[in-house]
Amino acid sequence: MNRRDSIKSLLLGSVAAGLALNGCVETKPEVKEIVSNDPVYGRTDKEKLRDKKLNDKTFLTEYELSTIAVLCDIILPSNDEYGSATEAGVKEFIEFIVKDLPYHQVPIRGGLMWLDGYSNKLFNKEFVSCTNAEQLQICDQIAYPEKTKQELKQGEHFFTLMRNLTLTGYYTTEMGFKDLGYKGNTPNVWDGIPEDVLKDHDVSYDEEWLAKCVDQSKRGDIAKWDDDGNLIS
């Protein structure tokens, strides 16, 4: 099982990642709408004005965002069917979140500084300048809380926050929904009461009624009734 499948398996088995931001997820799945300057999702005028103010602000630098992009794609890389976290707009989502929920600002910025400091200690260069193998070597040391060395606990807390933000951002986008196989409120196909149940109650369908009501080719048709309550079509 690869890293992406492992994360999906954990996510499907728990809602913890989805709740990690304590209500920061918008009701629409498309993250790029959340970070848009002119959102089209369901928002009040007051909420739209607040979103615009947040979007007009800048907190994270381009360098910090480039580091976040690398981390996001390490946590959720692309596969043969779906794009990576950054392709789903997770970097922009995190930039919005640190302005929407300012208590994330110090942990994120401090964590990025810690990451570069540790990377310089190991490889004499910043995290974004490391090779993929070197980046994974660093992440592997802070990605597993029960195995993290005491001196790397700050890095562990930062990586856990980044993982939660990445999963929340990705799996609330259209791409993430499709990756999970989530279909939402999709109507079931009803083909009538099962035959064994009908037999138990000694009843059966009238063939004419059955043809009108259980014909799946007519699912989209609007039923019409006469004045006596009889189904016309």
Rank of each mutant, 00 (worst) to 15 (best):
residue 140 D to S: 12
residue 51 D to A: 08
residue 132 N to Y: 07
residue 213 C to F: 10
residue 26 E to V: 02
residue 121 K to H: 10
residue 78 S to R: 13
residue 90 V to E: 07
residue 84 S to M: 08
residue 12 L to I: 09
residue 187 P to N: 10
residue 64 E to N: 05
residue 69 A to W: 00
residue 24 C to S: 09
residue 155 G to V: 06
residue 17 A to Q: 04
residue 68 I to V: 01
residue 16 A to M: 06
residue 133 A to W: 03
residue 146 E to I: 05
residue 97 I to L: 15
residue 219 R to K: 13
residue 69 A to E: 00
residue 136 L to D: 09
residue 124 N to T: 08
residue 98 V to P: 10
residue 40 V to W: 01
residue 93 F to D: 07
residue 9 S to T: 07
residue 89 G to S: 09
residue 202 D to S: 12
residue 162 M to Y: 06
residue 96 F to W: 15
residue 156 E to P: 00
residue 37 N to Q: 05
residue 48 K to P: 04
residue 58 T to W: 00
residue 218 K to P: 03
residue 220 G to A: 10
residue 214 V to E: 07
residue 30 E to N: 06
residue 99 K to A: 13
residue 66 S to R: 10
residue 78 S to Q: 15
residue 193 I to A: 04
residue 198 L to G: 06
residue 7 I to E: 11
residue 219 R to G: 12
residue 75 I to D: 12
residue 78 S to M: 14
residue 134 E to N: 02
residue 140 D to Q: 08
residue 123 F to E: 08
residue 181 G to E: 07
residue 183 K to I: 15
residue 31 V to M: 08
residue 96 F to V: 05
residue 87 E to A: 13
residue 78 S to P: 03
residue 207 E to V: 10
residue 194 P to T: 03
residue 95 E to L: 03
residue 209 W to D: 12
residue 130 C to D: 05
residue 148 T to N: 03
residue 167 L to E: 15
residue 231 L to V: 07
residue 129 S to N: 13
residue 6 S to A: 14
residue 179 D to H: 14
residue 151 E to G: 00
residue 15 V to N: 14
residue 56 D to Y: 01
residue 29 P to D: 07
residue 112 L to R: 01
residue 188 N to T: 11
residue 183 K to R: 11
residue 171 Y to E: 11
residue 18 G to M: 14
residue 63 Y to S: 12
residue 180 L to K: 09
residue 75 I to N: 09
residue 201 H to A: 11
residue 192 G to Q: 11
residue 63 Y to V: 10
residue 233 S to I: 05
residue 18 G to F: 07
residue 78 S to D: 15
residue 104 H to W: 15
residue 86 T to Y: 04
residue 117 G to V: 03
residue 204 S to P: 01
residue 6 S to H: 10
residue 166 T to Y: 09
residue 88 A to C: 11
residue 8 K to M: 15
residue 216 Q to Y: 02
residue 16 A to D: 08
residue 191 D to S: 10
residue 59 F to L: 14
residue 39 P to N: 04
residue 58 T to L: 02
residue 125 K to W: 09
residue 222 I to H: 05
residue 55 N to R: 09
residue 74 I to K: 02
residue 58 T to R: 01
residue 77 P to L: 13
residue 175 M to Y: 13
residue 173 T to R: 04
residue 66 S to V: 02
residue 199 K to D: 15
residue 212 K to A: 12
residue 225 W to M: 11
residue 184 G to T: 02
residue 38 D to C: 01
residue 224 K to N: 09
residue 182 Y to V: 15
residue 103 Y to D: 14
residue 134 E to V: 00
residue 191 D to V: 10
residue 169 G to Y: 06
residue 213 C to K: 09
residue 207 E to Q: 11
